[in-house]
Write a protein that binds this DNA or RNA. Sequence first.
DNA 1: GAAACTCCTTGATTCAGATCAAACGCGCGA
DNA 2: TCGCGCGTTTGATCTGAATCAAGGAGTTTC
Lengths: 248, 248
Amino acid sequence: MHNPLTAEVSQSCDDCPIRHRAVCARCEADELEVLDSIKYYRAYEAGQTILWSGDRMEFVGSVVRGVASLTQTMEDGRTQMVGLLLPSDFVGRPGRDSAAYDVVATTDIVMCCFRKKPFEEMMARTPHLAQRLLEMTLDELDAAREWMLVLGRKTAREKIASLLSIIARRDATLNLSAGAGPLEFDLPLTREAMADYLGLTLETVSRQINALKRDGVIELKGKRHVTVPDFDLLNEEAGDDSDGGMLS
Amino acid sequence: MHNPLTAEVSQSCDDCPIRHRAVCARCEADELEVLDSIKYYRAYEAGQTILWSGDRMEFVGSVVRGVASLTQTMEDGRTQMVGLLLPSDFVGRPGRDSAAYDVVATTDIVMCCFRKKPFEEMMARTPHLAQRLLEMTLDELDAAREWMLVLGRKTAREKIASLLSIIARRDATLNLSAGAGPLEFDLPLTREAMADYLGLTLETVSRQINALKRDGVIELKGKRHVTVPDFDLLNEEAGDDSDGGMLS
DNA sequence: GAAACTCCTTGATTCAGATCAAACGCGCGA
DNA sequence: TCGCGCGTTTGATCTGAATCAAGGAGTTTC
């Protein structure tokens, strides 16, 4: 198994390039050592399927760079993206043998992986690791349920605004650009990928994005670079006034 | 705090009326004793809100009898049910202070609760409890993501069939009526509650249920009692052929 | 530098499900 | 027994997003 990025491995928790939150939260020296000894990096190209639903999984890990998605597909080809994996997000199901969804690289991506078996053994020994994973899984559950509201009850325009809001938020916290002022970020998804996430068609996504632009809610430089002049306004469009002040 | 059902408390894991799966999986005598010492029962009437989103939670627990739902509501009143709690389902977020959703009793309901603080203390001491909870949370996450496919990509008819299938399955496993033959169960939800779960209107729910009846996929005795002559057929209607044989 | 991609936009038309509106059935308390 | 309220059904109409169809714009490939 080729390991293209071993050079990036770091022993220090603070500057660990992968930010694997499962560990960093309450790391202890000897645990980190174990984890480093079972960790490796893998790179995938945009479009590659990292894991097929039903596949045996031999690792857990997190996204270092790039974007991946969890996708479900029906026999007739209808697909729904059920999770968006951005840098620092965790992948894997400790205690489960097989993947429940396709994991697809949406952009070129680098993953930091831990071999599953030793990871689980370690988990059985260190209670706070299991607790940390539980917390992370609860976060994911919250995100999934928030998304159920988006899918079930929001209009196309609101869906787009919700997605942009989430990506903007994630991007801002990751880059620590916590100031007020306009937010700016690259859209890591094609119109089709957005449609699959939002339960829409790509045509509708295109129309609504351009409608938001026409209405001054967002600005576009090229098709993939977005500027949000007023984050509160975007959240209002998303029909979601909650925590609008989080970044301002 | 009134405790209407203390009489039902049982020390034995096997016939514990609440089936709190977090414990029963790998129970040990002294753990059970601790758990019993911090457990109490509560009853709620249909329509009562057990917990408001944002409320401080002082317990975790599971449903003994009846049905509850996790609900999210937008400022303008649109609501989406994000979780259906049937008997044996776990409620609560160990490690979290406040509820993320409204928890509403859909029918009269009995909950078995553990006081949160001591439960968490116990969790920190016993690794397999945290691991068990992690597994349960992963199950919930799977369920939520499966539901995202339903909400995002299925037609009204498929949505109804999916819901009926889930309830039928749960009902069958709970009552151990694992034989082949027609399934039969009571619908614990009003048309409106179904609509909130499926991202539809109650009129559409009504129409589609009667359409399924007209087409012989289900039979109705009264408005709330359903018979499914052919479970595979129902799953086909749900657009979900997977594991059709689970019960047959 | 043209062909062949892939991704995105835009327009015309259709249709599933929402909305608006009315009425039915059934249990329940007065 | 009579309303009365709640959940449900059913019908008529409307509409937001899907579908079908065509073209544009930016790449890679040879």
